[in-house]
């Protein structure tokens, strides 16, 4: 079986109609860029899941970052993706234009130098992300403590994927299987999907990001239809979680309920700093407000795979990457953005 056989199989598949969800935003981007939907039989449909960290962040969190950016002697440090995400009224980009103190970085570790050079300013990192990103914040906290830096805090909106998938299976989508992200699984371990796979009797295939890897994963999902099975096609991922990452994360963080944009509060689907490290927390709990800037935006339905961007009346008319109305049109991993571009 080589990739050409797989392509023929997927194009000519004439069995039961199947829907698979790619959970991760980076997968959504690769699938659209490589034109995978056009290579599949009309009986195989792919839907996008809630795996873009920027897209699932609620307005209450963005509003709090906006407030902090104009607070005296305070600087908000963030990944570039977050800058244009709308809060209930404004985005960080709007606040920057109004004089807000906001810096963009590629890596959270860059905040260490910023804070050391400017001890009179309080630096707040906008700590969003899933399982792959959280260990970075744990390592960052270790450094902050080791180097006795007093002017860094995190505003966290950390999420964990299994509880969100569970929520979707329980209340929303009808998927026949999931494409799980290789990079997250390197950290969380393929076994982290076992419970869900058994509970809903659905296959999970851990996939890489190239078109070949994705096609192979879709082929595997078709072959595993109706089976409770976790198949790892991403060589670097193991069954078990990365032990060091797990240890560092559990040293600083504990499970907590989290609010997802358009999905509401999901029990134990997030992480918060433990009480003993609360002095490094910029007030992350209870940022639960979820108000769309544009009431017509259906981002919540998009990230749960219930609607396609083309179903949104604003898509490509009022809402474009230049004038985004919702988070899904901003991030390079956002479903609306990727449908617009490809």
């Amino acid at each position: 079986m080589d990739i050409n056989d797989i392509k023929i199989f997927l194009r000519e598949y004439g069995g039961r109609k199947l829907t698979f969800m790619e959970v991760c935003g980076t997968h959504t981007a690769s699938i659209r860029e490589s034109g995978i939907p056009s290579l599949l039989s009309e009986n195989i449909r792919l839907i996008s899941g809630p795996g873009c960290p920027v897209c699932v962040t609620v307005s209450g969190y963005i509003d709090r970052l906006c407030e902090l950016s104009v607070k005296e002697s305070t600087c908000v440090v963030t990944f570039g993706d977050m800058i244009r995400v709308p809060g209930s009224k404004k985005s960080l980009a709007d606040m920057k234009a109004l004089g807000g103190n906001i810096k963009m970085v590629y890596s959270p570790f860059e905040i260490l130098d910023l804070a050391k050079k400017d001890a009179d300013t309080n630096y707040i990192f906008a700590a969003v992300g899933f399982e792959t990103t959280t260990p970075i914040y744990a390592l960052l906290l270790e450094k902050i403590i080791e180097e006795k830096i007093e002017n860094i805090k995190l505003l966290t909106a950390l999420k964990t994927m299994p509880a969100a998938i569970d929520h979707l299976c329980k209340y929303g989508i009808t998927a026949d299987g999931f494409i799980a992200p290789g990079n997250v699984t390197v950290i969380s371990g393929a076994d982290s999907y076992l419970e869900l796979s058994n509970k809903y009797h659905l296959p999970f295939v851990v996939s890489g990001f190239s078109a070949q890897e994705l096609l192979s994963s879709i082929y595997a999902l078709v072959k595993l239809e109706g089976k409770a099975r976790v198949l790892n096609l991403y060589g670097a991922a193991k069954k078990e979680a990365n032990a060091k990452a797990k240890e560092k994360v559990s040293k600083f963080f504990e499970p907590a309920d989290a609010v997802w944009r358009g999905m509401g509060k999901i029990e134990n689907s997030g992480l918060l700093l433990k009480n003993e490290y609360s002095k490094y927390d910029a007030g992350s709990a209870d940022l639960t407000a979820d108000h769309a800037k544009n009431s017509g935006c259906i981002c919540g339905k998009i990230i749960t795979g219930q609607k396609e961007p083309e179903n949104c009346p604003l898509f490509a008319k009022i809402c474009t990457p230049e004038n985004p109305q919702g988070a899904c049109m901003i991030s390079g991993e956002g479903t609306c953005f990727n449908h617009y571009k490809n």
Binding site: M1, F79, E110, I136, L139, Y219, A220, L233, G235, A236
Partner: peptide
Amino acid sequence: HAGLIIQKLSSNEASDMLDIFNELG
């Protein structure tokens, strides 16, 4: 990933994949 090394790439991934596909076939 964002300034953190999350994995080392191994060289025997291709052969593992082959076994898996034989099994799926």
